[in-house]
């Protein structure tokens, strides 16, 4: 019997660190897409570990829709400062003002699709040749076939039928001028792995992941937080509930769950007994059966 044994979390960590170092070695201008959500927080933590004692050798890039939770933005700035990383913020509002993106109509216009425009503009502005994303294959079926190194053409598009085979741990980041890669170091992690790792490593996360009182409106089963970006329809009204967020995205499409979970242990227990997928709280995925596949083809995260 061997004493040389790594737990599943340590194996996943080692794999993610290997992928991050591979990007730092193979590309000239990488960036880490940072949203302030738990997956990208774990990514920043992994990047710190990968390059310690040096600082993270690439900037963090946040595409700000203008519809973020204020707690997320505060956390973003605090974290960037704590880890000594350079953070670049680009605003969807600027793309709208320029006319490259057009606001949706309706009672809760989503800027989810518009992020793609701003993201591709930022990639072009800074000539990023590889962008780390916190996407996981367990999240959604279009992501289940995603590579670690995902090739994007000069329009930023993903072509699911023409992906490069990925064997062993040999990652091919070769590309033509103008093309770039999206890289997903935590591809093999599940929602549960992320929470367990946050607990194991004691990683700080924004307060809105824990239970709190908030005014929400129940829209077709999704509990949306009160904000300036939502217009009440018909009989709808805000009610104060004890909730927390299981994922963090735009206020217009991120649903809360009723929960009293006040610690990581309680969250892990809740995730373990959850009866709905994590993205079940995301109105953006409910728009159609292939919503994610379509968005990814256009250059989404």
């Amino acid at each position: 019997m061997s004493n040389y044994h790594l737990t599943h979390l340590k194996q996943l960590e080692a794999e993610a660190i290997f992928v991050m170092r591979e990007v730092a070695a193979q590309f000239e201008r990488p960036a880490l897409l940072f949203s302030g959500g738990k997956d990208s927080i774990v990514m920043v933590h992994l990047a710190q570990k990968a390059f310690w004692p040096a600082k993270i050798p690439f900037p963090l890039l946040h595409v700000d829709t203008g519809h973020n939770f204020v707690e997320t933005l505060d956390f973003r700035d605090e974290m960037a400062q704590r880890v000594g990383a350079n953070i670049i913020v680009r605003y969807v509002q600027d793309s709208i003002n320029k006319g490259t993106a057009v606001e949706e109509k309706g009672p809760n216009p989503s800027r989810n699709m518009l992020q793609t425009v701003t993201l591709l503009e930022a990639i072009e502005e800074f000539k990023f040749d590889a962008c780390f994303g916190g996407g996981r294959r367990d999240e959604e079926k279009a992501r289940a076939k995603e590579r670690f190194f995902s090739h994007r053409d000069e329009f930023g598009q993903w072509d699911p039928k023409n992906q490069r085979p990925e064997l062993w741990n040999l990652f091919n980041g070769k590309k033509q001028v103008g093309e770039h890669f999206r890289v997903f170091p935590i591809s093999n992690w599940t929602e549960m792995d992320v929470w367990q790792y946050i607990a194991l490593e004691n990683i700080p996360i924004p307060s809105i992941y824990f239970t709190h009182q908030r005014e929400v409106v129940d829209r077709r089963g999704t509990l949306l937080a009160k904000s300036d970006f939502i217009t009440l329809m018909g009989e709808e009204k805000y009610e104060t509930k004890t909730i927390r967020f299981r994922t963090i995205g735009d206020m217009t499409c991120t649903g809360a769950v009723e929960s009293a979970a006040n610690s990581l242990d309680e969250i892990i227990r809740e995730v373990a007994s959850a009866r709905q997928t994590e993205r079940g709280t995301r109105a953006d995925d409910k728009r159609s059966d292939a919503a994610m596949e379509d968005r990814k083809k256009q250059g989404y995260f």
């Binding site: 737990t7 599943h8 979390l9 194996q11 242990d265 227990r269």
Partner: peptide, 9 residues
Amino acid sequence: LDNYLSMDL
């Protein structure tokens, strides 16, 4: 809850 500290892959 502590299972995950010894699970393998």
